[in-house]
Design a protein around this nucleic acid. Structure first.
Length: 328
DNA sequence: CGCTTTTGACCGGCGC
DNA sequence: GCGCCGGTCAAAAGCG
C-alpha cells in the first residue's frame, strides 16, 4: 500500500464506475440520494494487521465514525478525530440525474497537506442498487426449508412488491490502511464481492445488534488503495455497544454537534440536510451533523432536533481552533 | 463453544 | 429472454 499522502485522489464511485479526481481528501455524505464526503484517516498507528484498527484517536473523547454516525459531531470534528485536517473535508451534493455533483470544499483553515481537493461523487444508488431486495427475510428468518435440495438454495422470501424502503445512507472516504474501520458498533461481515473495475473487493457488514438493520459496505478505491470508501445504510436503533475502548456512548458529549454552515454546499439538497440532522447520539447511522445555515424546514422523519441550532461550545473543546473560525 | 469470517451459490433488477 | 451485476444467504472454516 502506498502510504504516501496522495495528492490526487480519485474517488471511485462505489456504485458507479466513474471516478473523479480528488486532490487531497474529502468526506462525502450520502443519503437517500447519496452524496458523500471524504476525509483523510491516518493509518492505524501501528499497522494492526487488520483486525481492529483504531482510527487515530484523539484521545480524551475518542471519536469515531460512530460519533459521526450518531450525529454527535460534524464531519469536521470527525475529521479531527482521525487526525485529519478539517480543511480537507468536502461535501458534495449528489445530484439526481447525471449532472455533475456539486463539489464543495470547506477551507476552514488550511492546515492540510493537501491544499484543496475536489471530489466528486455520484453515488446515486437510488436506482440500481436501491437495495435489490434487502428486507428480504426480515432479519434472518430463513425458513430453512432446505427441503431436500442438496444444492444450497437460498430460499429467500422477498416480496418484490415492497421495494423495501430506501434506507438513508451516507458514504465517506477515509485514508486508511485498514478496510474495516472501528466505529464503536459491532459488525458481522456477511458478504464480499469483487468490485467491477477494481482489484479490491467490497465487503458487506451488518450490525450484529438484534433488531438493528444497519449495514455498511466497505471497499477500497482502486485508484488510490490508501482510500477506503465506507457506506453506511440505515440507522442504529440502539446505543453503541460498550466495548471498544470504554463506553463509547458516554464519550460523546451531546453538544458536539457543531455544524459548520460554511461547509454546506449551496445547492446541497435540503432533504439530505434534513436527514443529516443530528439526532441524539443514541443511534442512527444517518444522523448527520451539519445543518444548512438557513433551512431546516421541511423535516422528515428525523426532524426531532433538526431545528435546534448547534452548540458550538463544546465542539471547541474537541476540535482545533481553526475549525472554529467559521462559527456564526 | 460461540461468534465471526470466508466463499460459492442464489436472487432480483436492469440493460441489451 | 438472457446475461450481467450487485447484494445477500448460509454452510463451512477459522478464531479466541
Amino acid at each position: 500500500m502506498s502510504d504516501e499522502p496522495s495528492k490526487n485522489l480519485y474517488y471511485h464511485d462505489p456504485f458507479h464506475d466513474d471516478q473523479q479526481p480528488i486532490n487531497g481528501t474529502g468526506f462525502l455524505f450520502s443519503s437517500d440520494d447519496n452524496n458523500s464526503s471524504m476525509y483523510e484517516h491516518k493509518p492505524p498507528s501501528i499497522a494492526t494487521s487488520s483486525a481492529h484498527n483504531n482510527p487515530q484517536v484523539f484521545d480524551p473523547s475518542y471519536m469515531s465514525f460512530t460519533d459521526c454516525l450518531q450525529g454527535s459531531m460534524d464531519y469536521n470534528t470527525l475529521a479531527t478525530a482521525f487526525n485529519l485536517s478539517p480543511s480537507s473535508s468536502e461535501v458534495f451534493s449528489p445530484v439526481e440525474g447525471n449532472q455533475k455533483p456539486a463539489v464543495h470544499m470547506a477551507s476552514s483553515g488550511e492546515i492540510t497537506p493537501s491544499p484543496n481537493s475536489s471530489v466528486s461523487s455520484s453515488s446515486t444508488e437510488a436506482g440500481a442498487e436501491e437495495d435489490s431486495g434487502k428486507n428480504k427475510k426480515d432479519g434472518q428468518g430463513k425458513e430453512g426449508e432446505d427441503g431436500g435440495e442438496s444444492s444450497k438454495k437460498v430460499n429467500k422470501t422477498k416480496k418484490k412488491g415492497e421495494k423495501s424502503q430506501k434506507e438513508p445512507r451516507f458514504a465517506f472516504m477515509t485514508k486508511s490502511e485498514v478496510d474495516h474501520l472501528e466505529d464503536g458498533y459491532r459488525w458481522r461481515k456477511y458478504g464480499q464481492k469483487a468490485v467491477k473495475n477494481s482489484p479490491y473487493p467490497r465487503s458487506y457488514y451488518r450490525c450484529t445488534t438484534q433488531k438493528c438493520t444497519v449495514k455498511k459496505r466497505v471497499e477500497r478505491s482502486f485508484q488510490d488503495p490508501s482510500i477506503v470508501i465506507t457506506t453506511y445504510e440505515g440507522q442504529h436503533n440502539h446505543q453503541i455497544p460498550t466495548t471498544l475502548r470504554g463506553n463509547a456512548s458516554q464519550m460523546l458529549p451531546h453538544s458536539i454537534l457543531a455544524p459548520t454552515p460554511m461547509m454546506v454546499p449551496p445547492n446541497f439538497p435540503q432533504e439530505l440536510l434534513i436527514q443529516m440532522s443530528p439526532m441524539d447520539y443514541r443511534g442512527g447511522a444517518t444522523s448527520y451533523m451539519y445543518q444548512p445555515p438557513q433551512t431546516l424546514t421541511s423535516l422528515h422523519h428525523h426532524d426531532q432536533q433538526l431545528q435546534q441550532l448547534p452548540d458550538y461550545g463544546l465542539l471547541q473543546d474537541m476540535v482545533p481552533s481553526l475549525m472554529m473560525k467559521q462559527e456564526p
